[in-house]
């Protein structure tokens, strides 16, 4: 009984280590191919549209709702000790440092990460990836690098947009709905938010974008076994990249503090 348990534990650990190693090798290869010719600019632009532009509605909705709720909730709390004037600062700090990047990351992982894994996974099981190899085209460069770059670059802009829209949403609720003085609200927001706070959030977004692209592609690229495999790869991509975003978020917060 104990032996079996230990054996199972060992097997799981080994499998996990093997997978981690494979992910690291995949990342290394992606970085290497990112900087070597030929560059598939057309693929990059197409992916920037698919991952970036097409994610705008989702990111807008998430950001505006978060900003509005944040203003509403902090108003309720702060009113208890008469600090309503501070909600502008709370909203803008939270949106720039934390919620903008993390929520955008989670939404993009769900939307674009899943679609990358499903698309590459289907290409793997229908031998389209093999076909690329046979036509002397490196699929890492043709498929993975454009997706990795696009998700890194577009996360930067999406998350910037998310911050801005979130703060607008907060302003709307704080000033128009709850009746805080607009000048106080703005002053509190501006005085308490440094440019570093914004940069800090954007750097986080870049990392999250890279994670989404790499994990989505890794899962898709290594899909095995038909439709079921594609399903597993897609789920795996979303779960792993969301987990990584949340874990890395803590460490990046601690590091960039």
């Amino acid at each position: 009984m104990i032996n079996k348990l230990l054996e199972l534990l060992g097997k799981k650990t080994l499998a996990l280590l093997r997978e981690m190693g494979a992910v690291i090798i995949f990342c290394g290869q992606t970085f290497r191919w990112t900087f070597s010719r030929p560059f598939y600019l057309k693929n990059l632009l197409k992916q920037m549209e698919q991952i970036g532009v097409n994610s705008v509605p989702v990111v807008l909705t998430t950001a505006i709702s978060t900003g509005m709720v944040l203003a509403l909730q902090s108003y309720t709390g702060f009113k208890r000790f008469g600090a309503q004037s501070l909600i502008g600062a709370v909203v803008s700090l939270s949106m720039t440092r934390e919620l903008g990047p993390v929520l955008t990351g989670l939404m993009v992982a769900g939307r674009a990460g899943a679609s990358m894994a499903a698309e590459l996974g289907t290409m793997r099981v229908t031998e389209q990836i093999d076909a690329l190899y046979t036509m002397a085209t490196n699929p890492m460069k043709y498929l993975v690098v454009p997706r990795f770059l696009a998700s890194t670059i577009m996360m930067f802009f999406l998350s910037g947009l998310g911050m801005y829209i979130g703060i607008l949403g907060g302003y709307f609720v704080g000033v128009k709905v709850l009746g805080t003085n607009p000048v106080t609200y703005m002053n509190q927001s501006i005085n308490n938010t440094e440019v570093e706070d914004i940069w800090y959030g954007l750097v986080k977004s870049l990392v999250f974008g890279a994670v989404i692209g790499l994990i989505g592609c890794y899962k898709g690229f290594n899909t095995e076994g038909g439709a079921e495999g594609v399903g597993k790869a897609t789920t795996g991509a979303v779960v792993v990249s969301c987990m990584l975003i949340l874990i890395l978020d803590y460490f990046l917060s601690a590091l960039l503090w």
Partner: peptide, 18 residues
């Protein structure tokens, strides 16, 4: 890759890029 340019391959399910 240079060698592969000498090849053409027909896949079982055709593997066309969809």
């Amino acid at each position: 890759n240079e060698l592969r340019k000498k090849f053409g391959m027909l896949f079982q399910m055709a593997a066309l890029f969809d």
